[in-house]
Amino acid sequence: MTLIVENLSKSFGATSVFSNVSFSIEKGEIVCIKGKSGEGKTTLLRCLTTLETPDGGSIKINDRYLYKEDNGGIQTASKDNLQEIRQEIGLVFQSFNLFPHMNVLENLMLAPNFLNKRSKEDIEKRAEELLKQLGMEGKGDSYPYQLSGGQKQRVAIARACMLYPSILCFDEPTSALDEDTRGQISEIIRSLAGQDIAIIIVTHDNAFVDEIAERVITMSGGTIYES
């Protein structure tokens, strides 16, 4: 299993957002997470990507614990492991969060250059390749403010893919898109899944779920069920 979530719980202060959330995802699967507003979908993604620390339960990615159940509490992976495991899971934010002062190529290459695991040439080649794959050829020199919403999203996807993640999460990927670009994004997501990346999509958009989901998980009343 690529991702195993067990008995995960999270609260903010006294209010519990969810508890006992368990599910697992294989590589190449496309899983949609649905649920009413405020049910904790974004919070769940933020736990998976270490932006929030869960209160209990465990998250295991490619057989390594990101968070591990520990006497009812939770233990976070050691600093070195955390850095490594974190790169296995990417997130495409609802608002993309591109770096506005960097052009598209710089956005893509910043993290891999910092992590310094591949040569500069490989990194640049990978960036060019991804842009081509995503239909953004020739846009490497553009700044985020010069791009449309759909183009920014593709840059955000490419930026996440630069680190060769095994899991890629999307928060409301269709919220800023029209019909046509929605079709394009589902094609892109399918092709990523075809490259063995596990895909987790949080969305309200039922039409999009019908179009793309292989599995649907619903969050409701602080827990989840799969239909």
């Binding site: 850095q83 974190r86 990417g90 934010f93 969060n97 910043l110 993290a111 996440a160 680190l163």
Partner: peptide, 10 residues
Amino acid sequence: GQVEASTVLG
């Protein structure tokens, strides 16, 4: 979001 994106990117 700028810090969060950076965190997720390692």
